[in-house]
Design a protein around this nucleic acid. Structure first.
Length: 426
RNA sequence: GUGGAAUUAGCUCAGUUGGUUAGAGCGCUAGUUUGUGGCACUAGAGGUCAUGGGUUCGAUUCCCAUAUUCCACCCCA
């Protein structure tokens, strides 16, 4: 029988797990500081949640979803992202009647049937936030600031922040029309992809990298110039807020975002260390989404961060997210009789809240020492027949060999005291 | 979905112009006379050389297919 991971999935092994736990903990802490509450939503939803939420025209919905029929004949889809499910929950649970804004964060796995590449997996992890009910640019800035705080707290240098405004339903059609007119006499000379984009979504032509298309693209009308007054005010308000927070950013007109629900503010944090999958984090405003999905007319904004990409970025910047916490104490026995004693003591120590290890491999004295050393256990107590008889033992600090006498009957208390004192000295 | 590269021990990689028992370093287990670890030394375990077919007296090596990973497009986190 052949064992193998399904394509595009990964095990997170014990030697990596501390990175994930640290990232998860810091993200939850930072979100809490900004007043966001965690929400947990199901791994799968009715398929139409994503068709309506993410958008029928997107690649994600058209060719990347894990969709299947369950035994009850329902069409079910493994979530390809978090926003649609959170919006569904917001509507279904009447969160519109909670104090506004409703600020939520989540830590999820998501699934997309895509061709594999570095930083792109079929099952992947996202940290995300969604905020409902506020339409002002301040909350856009607050969410971007949350991300900056997260990156700083975790110790990675500021990645590049790019922002853009893609307008709203009242000004986007005008821009769309302007693009169509601009490209009408040029599209014949452009690449095949652009010919297709011209029909489906001319905005996508803006970030084409083909050499033959570039001259046309650089001269093309820019979204920013076609924003309506409200969108213009919103965008400049966002920039003012970011500046007042000393957050550096660049306006990148080529950011379009592939999901249909975005309006006005869109942004990305980009890295050069994750292959072509440079976007660590992407998000934006979705003022019509809740209403589109059958809820009240409530504006929203959110982002999702690719945790795998984030961890790659951290690693490439040489950031050590946390050290593994080894067990504190190793109890070493010398004989069958003392082994029984050591076992009892370990039980007592653990119940008193002190982590410890005992030999479970039938190892010799010397081999037990080597084991403790390999695992980096900082303290050790030898319990032999002499110690059992006298009721006294020595606790040893492995780092420098310093020892102290302790009473076995008071082991948990005295060991804790010694280890605490040692911590202060060091 | 289109194009290209790679796959040998748990990990990082040698190697075989087709020829008996396929190697190293690291890691793992044990030991260096059984009351003190790190260093060093010795020994051991661990590979159907990704999988399935083909060519051949003989394939880990050549050919084809499949799988997986990586790279470029596409798209996105």
């Amino acid at each position: 029988m052949k064992l193998s991971l399904p394509k595009g999935t990964k095990d997170i092994l014990p030697n990596q797990i501390h990175l994930w736990q640290k990232a998860e903990r810091v993200f939850a802490e930072v979100c809490a500081q900004y007043g966001f509450s965690e929400i947990r939503i199901p791994t799968f939803e009715h398929t139409d949640i994503f068709e309506r939420g993410v958008g029928n025209a997107t690649d994600v919905v058209r060719k990347e979803m894990y969709t299947f029929e369950d035994k009850g004949g329902r069409s079910i889809t493994l979530r390809p992202e978090g926003t649609a499910g959170v919006v569904r929950s917001f509507i279904e649970n009447g969160m519109g009647s909670m104090p506004s804004p409703v600020k939520l964060f989540y830590n999820i796995t998501a699934f997309r049937y895509e061709k594999m590449q570095k930083g792109r997996y079929r099952e992947f992890h996202q940290f995300g936030v969604e905020a409902f009910g506020s339409s002002g640019p301040e909350i856009d800035a607050e969410i971007i600031s949350l991300l900056c705080t997260f990156f700083e707290r975790v110790g990675i240098a500021q990645t590049r922040l790019c922002i853009n405004s893609i307008g709203c339903p009242s000004c986007r059609p005008i821009y769309h029309q302007a693009l169509v007119e601009y490209f009408s006499d040029k599209v014949a000379a452009m690449c095949d992809d652009c010919k297709a984009r011209y029909e489906i979504n001319p905005q996508r032509m803006i970030d084409c990298k083909e050499q033959r298309c570039k001259p046309f693209v650089t001269e093309a009308p820019r979204q920013i110039e076609y924003l309506c007054q409200d969108c213009r005010t919103h965008f400049s308000g966002l920039q003012a807020s970011l500046s007042s927070l000393d957050i550096t950013y660049e306006v990148d007109p080529s950011i379009v975002r592939g999901l249909d629900y975005y309006s006005r503010t869109v942004f990305e944090f980009v890295s050069d260390h994750v292959g072509t999958q440079g976007t660590i984090c992407g998000g934006g405003r979705y003022d019509r989404l809740v209403e589109t999905m059958g809820g009240p007319s409530v504006p929203g904004i959110g982002f999702a961060m690719g945790v795998e990409r984030f961890l790659m970025e951290a690693e490439s910047q040489g950031v050590v997210l946390s050290e593994r916490e080894p067990v504190k104490l190793c109890l070493v026995h010398m004989s069958d009789a003392s082994y029984q004693k050591v076992f009892q003591l370990a039980h007592r120590l653990r119940r008193a809240g002190i982590s410890c290890e005992v030999d479970l491999m039938g190892r010799s004295f010397r081999a037990q020492m080597k084991y403790a050393n390999k695992l980096g256990i900082p303290y050790m107590i030898v319990i032999g027949d002499d110690e059992v008889a006298s009721g006294k033992a020595k606790i040893k600090r492995m780092k420098d060999g310093f020892e102290m006498d302790i009473e076995i009957s008071d082991l948990p208390e005295q060991a804790a005291l010694f280890m605490n004192e040692s911590k202060k000295e060091i």
